[in-house]
Each structure stands twice: as C-alpha cells, then as structure tokens.
Nucleic acid binder design. Structure first.
Lengths: 233, 233
DNA sequence: ATTACTATTATGTAGCTACATATAAAAGTC
DNA sequence: GACTTTTATATGTAGCTACATAATAGTAAT
C-alpha cells in the first residue's frame, strides 16, 4: 500500500518553480491542467491550486479559466516594499531615534498638493515639517499635509512630542495608499536641514493615503544622502 | 429555512478590514478566533482563514498559533513594486522604444561588483553598457555585469540587436532577486549619455539576480531625470 | 462567411473534515 | 519561587466535494 505522503503547497510550488527554472516549462508554454499536475506530483488539485495562485501572484505564470496556465513570456520583477514607521526603521538599524518639529501651520493647499490629493478646490489643511534623526544626525525630512476633514483630531496632538508619522500610522488606517519614488537635488533649504551640500542627490519617498476616496495625508519624505531602499527577498 | 448565501473570501476580508478601519478592532487588540468570526459573518472557517491570511500578508494583522490574531500596533506600509522589461515599460507609456549598445567587453569584476555578487575572488564576466530610449530620447542607462558561469550563452547573443535586459529576462529565470533604489548625481559621463546636466539627481534601480546561490547578473539602471517609480495599488 | 447559440472544460472558490503544529496556560516537580 | 512537563487551543494545512465562472471550441442558423 502506498503511504499517504502529504505534500505541502509550498513544496509543490517549489517543484513547479523548479520546472520553470530548468525550462521544462518555457516562456509561452502551456502547463498541464492542475488536475494532471496534481496526479503527477501526487497531491490534491487544491494543493496545486494554492501553489499556482502563488506563482501567478509572483508574476511567473498566467492563469485563465478554461484557457489554462501559461508561463509568462515577459516576466516582471515583482518585489515587496516595506515602509515602516521611521522610528522603528531607525531603531532597527541600532541607532538612537530623534525627532524635531520644524513647522506646524494651518494653510491652504498649494496647487501641487491639491492635485496630488485630487481636490476639487484648495482647502485648509495642517502643514507639518519635521526632521527625523538617527544618532543625532538628520535621517529623513518630511513635509506633510494632513486633511482636517478626515483627521480633525490631529489638531489636538502635540506634534512636538509625537510625530505625525507615528500618530497617523497608529490612528488613521487607510484603505488606499499611493507610493512614488524619485530623486531630487537638495535646494538651499533642504541642504541646510539635512546637513548636506546644496545639489546633493536625495531619494524621495512620496506617500499619499486615503480612506474611501477621501484623502488623509500626503508626505514627501526626503532621505539623507546615501539612503537606500531595499526590497524584501 | 435560511438561504445558504455564499460569501466570497474577499467580501469577508473587506468586512474584517472595515472593522479595522472603523476601529471596532484597534491596534494591539486581539480579534475573536476564526471560528467565531466565521459564525458571526455567516461563513466557514476556511473562508475566514483565507481572508485573514490576506490581511496578514498585507501587514495589517499578526497571527500566531494558539495566540490568535492581533491587530498590528505598528503597521507597515507594504507595497508591490513591478519592474517590467524596459521595452515593455516604454511601450506602455505610448512611446517608441529604442536601444543602443554602448559597450560590450570581457573584463574582471571590479571590487564593488564582486562584493555585490558575493564572489570569493574577482572573475571574468561580460560587461555591458546600454542605453534605452523612449521617443529617441535617453530613458535608462544600464551598466551590467553578466556571469559566464551561469549564462555562457550570452556570448553568442548579438547584443547590438537584442538587449541583455530582454535576453536575460526571457532566458534566465532566477530564484532570488535583490533590488535596491537610491539617488545619485550625474557625473560627466552619465550626464553626457543621458543628455542631462552634470550634477542632476537621478534615480538608480540596482538589481541582482541569482540562481541557487550562483549569480546571474547585476545591473545598475540609471534613470532619466524626473523618472518616478510608482507602486501598484 | 458571419453571427448566435450551446457545450465543454479548466480554473476559482466555498464548505466540509481531519489532522498538524505552535504555543499559551495550567499543572506538576524540585 | 523557579523550572519543567503537560494540556488545551487557535491557527495552519491537506484533501475532499460541489458548484461557479469564464472562455474556448464546436454547432446551428442566417
């Protein structure tokens, strides 16, 4: 009697992945149907389904009902990016976290911000500028606008003590988040605040969060020179 | 008799997510066990399991056997980054793709590259420099090293016609990929090739791929000024 | 040939059961 | 009290069935 070995779906996934790597299945090829693979590998179809779902999520194969599974001809490099709370990021580096509030002002959104937030007309929001420090040295400079429609409570928060970054992440869950990454040259003001030469190339992480079509906040985080963003494996 | 409505796991996920958003469940809180939520929402535990798995993957909750499910106190912003083949990226923008091979040379890996690839000692690899164009204008400048151990066939490819980017993506699937993003100032050579002023801030996408601990290639892609990297929703 | 309809088929998913596994909590031991 | 062992329990997962859904392929009508 055959012993009923139970294969984990990750094993099955890895074995199918191995066939992609050794080109048993080549780009553009159609894979056997789940049921046949299941029989071949000695597991249930549901296990193959889970494995295939994962490979499809990773961008390696494409699946279509009735159409079957095909190996992607133009695979994309798909990576997961984690942006933690800045304090946690600094502490994970083994550095001492510090924080300075530079500006806290009620102001009407300038056109660029209004556009980012998809506002019909400019509105008054809380404008905050703050500097995050690692071991006393500038780490990230954030320029943030916070909607008073969705976060009126922010007015009661002492932003000199608790950063808007932390307060919002902890208190304002979002339903949607846009991230964009780009490079800028340090202007005189930024250079002074980040203690870097004017013209230095800096990585910027821009993040906008929404709750049900209503904007919560948009931040432009200018990182210190040499900052690198890494992806999870 | 109660009609047997079948709730999709995405619905269940969204309903639990809504409870995170409206703070029925607050950061640090322990959620009811899957079975109770299932009863509450009128579905099977397996459906809740799938929904919870997704919420955990998104970084919103943490699950532990016996420990139950808790709302993450410090949620991370987790986003998915897609890096397509450059040709596909340019064409998706509605631009005409162009490509120029600038350099193709066998050379011994300089220390920085050897370190990136975790080589014990420098080895000879194929060094390629190429420029990707969008509508005749410089788009991405790539500086690439290709291992002859894992990709000896690359020597037979006419890189003046087919870019190493495309050939490798299509022919050399990888088991691991490191991505790092940072900003640099254009030096004289880069500035000339990308047709940009010296000192311009440029976003760099560095990517290294491996197959079973053996490096395949490492690329430093210097993007044109103003290039932005966006995440999937 | 073109269109409209129908049948077929591969994946997608919900629900069930059974068992595995990690671990928090309780009980026992020194 | 500190440590170890046991027990209870919530999540994790494999396998099964049944049905839903999309899309292709085939058939019939025009």
């Amino acid at each position: 009697m055959t012993e009923p070995i139970r294969h984990s779906w990750t094993d099955i996934r890895d074995r199918i992945h191995a066939r992609l790597l050794d080109r048993t299945y080549r780009p553009g090829d159609k894979l056997p149907r789940d049921e046949d693979i299941a029989q071949d590998l000695g597991c249930a179809r549901s296990t193959v389904q889970r494995a295939m779902r994962d490979l499809a999520d990773a961008g390696l194969v494409e699946r279509k009902r009735k159409g079957g599974t095909t190996v992607r001809a133009d695979p994309v490099t798909r990576a997961t990016l984690d942006v933690p709370i800045t304090r946690a990021e600094v502490e994970a580096l083994g550095s001492v976290y510090g924080y300075h509030l530079l500006l806290r002002d009620l102001a009407v959104t300038p056109p660029a911000i209004a556009a980012t937030l998809a506002l019909r007309k400019p509105v008054e929001m809380l404008h905050v500028e703050a500097l995050h420090l690692a071991d006393q040295r500038p780490y990230i400079l954030e320029d943030r606008w916070i909607s008073l429609e969705t976060s009126p409570e922010i007015l009661g928060v002492d932003l000199a003590v608790e950063s808007a970054n932390e307060w919002l992440v902890r208190n304002k869950p979002y339903s949607r988040c846009d991230l964009r990454l780009y490079a800028i040259e340090a202007n005189a003001r930024t250079a002074l605040q980040l203690d870097t030469p004017v013209g230095a190339a800096l990585l910027v992480i821009e993040r906008t969060t929404w709750i049900n079509e209503a904007p919560i906040t948009t931040v432009r985080s200018v990182t210190k020179p040499g900052y690198q963003m890494l992806t999870q494996i």
